[in-house]
Design a binder for these strands. Structure first.
Lengths: 129, 129
DNA sequence: CCTTGACCTTCCAGCGACTGGAGGCCCTAT
DNA sequence: ATAGGGCCTCCAGTCGCTGGAAGGTCAAGG
């Protein structure tokens, strides 16, 4: 399979696949013409990477997960540890966004939103709120 | 006030303040020795920027908000519009993270996390789940 | 056989919002 | 005179791509 085929199969842009090779996540073979040639294993690995990325794992976390995925003697504890750390990061991010959301929603609801210049949102941002 | 003083007063790193000048968010005066000199207005503007950034507004949104903050003839509707768009973005981001969180939490809870290699997390990422 | 167009290649630059560090000037206190 | 801290500019790096330029390759149609 060429990069276009694998791109369609995985849903990942060709640019992204080349980038993953560049940073050493995958090592596709090369044909005589210099084209990348992707095996079934490459397909599995890229699918895996795509899903891991869509769950918000960083590239380095993906690298570690992929190594564990490839290592048939891994301990599931190692995988779970990475996942738990990431889950905690997601929770922290959600909490941060919810705090922002609460403050912002309060300011928005206090603002008349008409033609007058008086604006509780700006006052709040300026520290008068 | 020099940059160190304003940094303490606003809580923003000096590097960030220089960066804000570089991209035209602020225009502090300069002393004969080349040092930046910050007025009370600069202090207010930087405080405003710090709060807006901490609510997740992008730099360009901050630029627009600061312009409205400075313009005493603004309509509060313009401010509210920016804030509402941002609020919607935050909500979208929260929803995205919660979806990730749900999937990930499910995988984590299904994983024994022991010394055996069998791992529902890896299976899920591979698409077997 | 030639051309067209889709596909592939590499390399370089840019996004957002800083952050770190090098190298050097300035100011105050001892 | 010197030591220290603070200030200056400029360059490079972060993360994960993404866009574009310049050019090689391949299959189909005339």
């Amino acid at each position: 399979m060429n990069i276009g085929d694998i791109s369609k199969a995985t849903g990942l842009p060709a640019k992204t696949i080349r980038y993953y090779e560049e940073i050493g996540l995958i090592r596709p073979a090369r044909g005589a013409n210099g084209y990348r040639h992707f095996s079934e294993t490459d397909l599995h690995n890229l699918t895996f990477l795509g899903r891991a990325r869509s769950l918000g794992f960083s590239i380095e976390e993906c690298r570690a997960l992929l190594a564990l995925y490839t290592d048939k003697d891994r301990a599931s504890a190692d995988v779970k540890q990475i996942a738990r750390v990431h889950l905690a990061q997601i929770d922290a991010k959600i909490a941060e966004l919810q705090a922002m959301r609460a403050t912002l929603a309060e300011l928005v609801s206090a603002c008349a939103g008409d033609q007058r210049p008086d604006c509780p949102i700006l006052k709040g941002l300026a520290g008068e709120g």
